Simulated scan of single mutants.
Amino acid sequence: MHAITIRGSGGPDVLDWTEVPDPRPGAGEVLVRVTATAVNRADVLQRQGLYPPPAGASEILGLECSGTITELGENVDGWQVGDQVCVLLAGGGYAEQVVVPAPQLLPVPDGVGLVAAAALPEAACTVWATAVMSAGLRGGEVLLVHGGGGGIGTHAIQVGKALGATIAVTAGSAERLEQCRRLGADILINYRDQDFVTELHNVTDGANVILDNMGASYLDRNLDALATGGRLVIIGFQGGLTGELDIGTLMRKRAGIASIALRPQPVPEKGRIVAEVQKNLWPLVERGCVRPVIGQTVPLREAGDAHRSMEKGTAFGKILLTS
C-alpha cells in the first residue's frame, strides 16, 4: 500500500507519498480501507519532531479516519467486513489501509457521508472526554472555547450549545468569529485586539468550563476568566509548556485544572470514551445538532499542502485528506 511517511523532522516538504508494507490485523483488531483522514495539530507537531507517537503506535501520521472494514482479526465481535466506520487512532491514518483496535471503531452516523465522517472521531472524543466527562459541562453554564475556528473549536461550540450552555469563543478575525456565531457561539472575542478575561466578565460571572489549546501563555488569564468552581481543561500547548500558577487564585475560586491527551491513553480507556461518544453524542449528530465542519479537502498524496494550510490557519474547521 501507499502512505505518507516523514523524511526526517522539518517542514511540510519532508512528507513523502511512498510504498510501505501492508498492515495485518491481530487479535481484537480490524483492517480498514481508508476513504479519508484529517489533519490535526498533533500531526504537525510530530512532523516537526516535537510529538513522537506513543510506544507501539504507527509512525505514520493520522489520528482519525473513515473507511470500510476489509478484514477482521480474531476475537472481534459486533463488526463485519463491509461495515463503514470512522475511527480514533494513535497513528496510521495517512495511508490507504490502517489497523484499528476494535474498541476504537465508531459507526458512521446516519446523515453523515463517509468522507465527512473522517472529521468526527478526534474532535468528538476530545470534546466529550474533556468538556463533558472530565469537566462536567451542563446546561446553563458558560463554556469558553479558545481557537473557536479550529477542528476542536467548531465541534465544541456545537456540543456545548446542544447541551444548553452559553458559548464564548476566541478567534483571530471578524470573519472567523462570524462563522463561530453561525455555529451557535454567543460571546465573540477577537484575541488580537480584545482581552478575553475582560470581555467575558463584562457579560458573565466567568466561565464554568474553559477548553484551552494554548497552555502556558494563557494559564494566568484562564484562571482569571474562571467563575467560582470553574474547571480549566488544557488540551494543547501552542502557547508553550511552562507557566506560573497562582495557587491563591485557584483556591479562592475553588477551581480545578485538568490536562487530557487522548493519544497516549491505553485502548481500554479509549474504548470507554468511544462508547460514551456513540451513546451520548452520536444521537446529537444524527439529529443535526452537531455536524462535521470541513474547511478544506486535499488529496492524501498532497498532505504537505494541507499542513501548510493548518500552519497558516486559513481553513475554518477540519482539513480532510482523501485517498
Rank of each mutant, 00 (worst) to 15 (best):
residue 275 A to F: 08
residue 48 Q to Y: 03
residue 69 I to T: 08
residue 323 S to P: 13
residue 241 L to V: 14
residue 12 P to S: 14
residue 19 E to K: 13
residue 312 K to C: 08
residue 126 T to R: 09
residue 47 R to P: 01
residue 125 C to F: 05
residue 16 D to R: 15
residue 126 T to K: 11
residue 129 A to Q: 14
residue 117 A to C: 07
residue 220 D to Q: 15
residue 47 R to Y: 00
residue 23 P to Y: 04
residue 302 E to W: 08
residue 274 V to H: 00
residue 13 D to E: 15
residue 248 G to L: 12
residue 233 V to S: 09
residue 104 Q to R: 10
residue 25 P to F: 09
residue 289 C to Q: 14
residue 209 V to W: 04
residue 303 A to K: 02
residue 21 P to M: 10
residue 308 R to C: 08
residue 130 T to V: 11
residue 14 V to I: 10
residue 166 T to H: 07
residue 316 F to Y: 15
residue 206 G to H: 07
residue 307 H to W: 02
residue 104 Q to I: 02
residue 225 A to L: 07
residue 77 D to S: 15
residue 45 L to N: 05
residue 48 Q to D: 06
residue 308 R to V: 07
residue 81 V to N: 11
residue 278 Q to V: 15
residue 138 R to K: 15
residue 127 V to Y: 08
residue 144 L to H: 05
residue 206 G to F: 06
residue 288 G to P: 01
residue 3 A to H: 00
residue 270 K to E: 04
residue 291 R to T: 13
residue 8 G to A: 09
residue 28 G to M: 09
residue 21 P to G: 12
residue 215 G to W: 11
residue 36 A to Y: 00
residue 51 Y to P: 03
residue 245 L to S: 11
residue 184 G to M: 06
residue 109 P to H: 01
residue 159 V to F: 03
residue 102 A to G: 07
residue 71 E to R: 14
residue 190 N to G: 03
residue 156 A to L: 08
residue 2 H to M: 12
residue 203 V to P: 01
residue 289 C to R: 15
residue 68 T to V: 15
residue 322 T to R: 04
residue 16 D to V: 12
residue 30 V to E: 04
residue 271 G to I: 01
residue 5 T to W: 01
residue 58 S to P: 01
residue 160 G to P: 02
residue 194 Q to K: 10
residue 142 V to Q: 02
residue 174 A to N: 13
residue 39 V to N: 00
residue 302 E to Y: 08
residue 291 R to W: 09
residue 285 V to T: 03
residue 209 V to H: 06
residue 200 L to C: 04
residue 187 I to D: 01
residue 27 A to W: 06
residue 32 V to D: 01
residue 59 E to T: 14
residue 107 P to V: 03
residue 174 A to S: 14
residue 251 M to E: 11
residue 261 A to T: 13
residue 287 R to W: 08
residue 261 A to D: 12
residue 53 P to L: 11
residue 183 L to A: 06
residue 4 I to H: 00
residue 277 V to D: 00
residue 43 D to T: 05
residue 183 L to M: 12
residue 225 A to R: 01
residue 315 A to N: 01
residue 69 I to A: 07
residue 163 L to F: 09
residue 164 G to I: 10
residue 102 A to I: 06
residue 193 D to W: 13
residue 127 V to R: 07
residue 52 P to E: 13
residue 205 D to T: 14
residue 117 A to W: 00
residue 79 W to I: 07
residue 217 S to N: 13
residue 179 Q to K: 15
residue 107 P to S: 12
residue 133 M to Q: 15
residue 18 T to V: 14
residue 251 M to L: 15
residue 174 A to Y: 08
residue 321 L to A: 05
residue 118 A to R: 01
residue 98 V to L: 02
residue 5 T to M: 03
residue 79 W to V: 08
residue 120 L to Q: 09
residue 306 A to K: 03
residue 257 I to K: 08
residue 111 G to F: 06
residue 14 V to H: 05
residue 262 L to P: 01
residue 6 I to G: 02
residue 130 T to P: 12
residue 261 A to L: 15
residue 181 R to T: 05
residue 255 A to L: 10
residue 192 R to N: 13
residue 231 R to Q: 14
residue 210 I to A: 02
residue 316 F to P: 07
residue 43 D to F: 03
residue 118 A to G: 07
residue 56 G to E: 07
residue 251 M to G: 12
residue 30 V to A: 05
residue 235 I to N: 12
residue 143 L to A: 11
residue 78 G to V: 13
residue 215 G to Y: 09
residue 37 T to V: 09
residue 43 D to G: 03
residue 88 L to N: 03
residue 24 R to C: 11
residue 125 C to H: 04
residue 96 E to R: 14
residue 75 N to C: 12
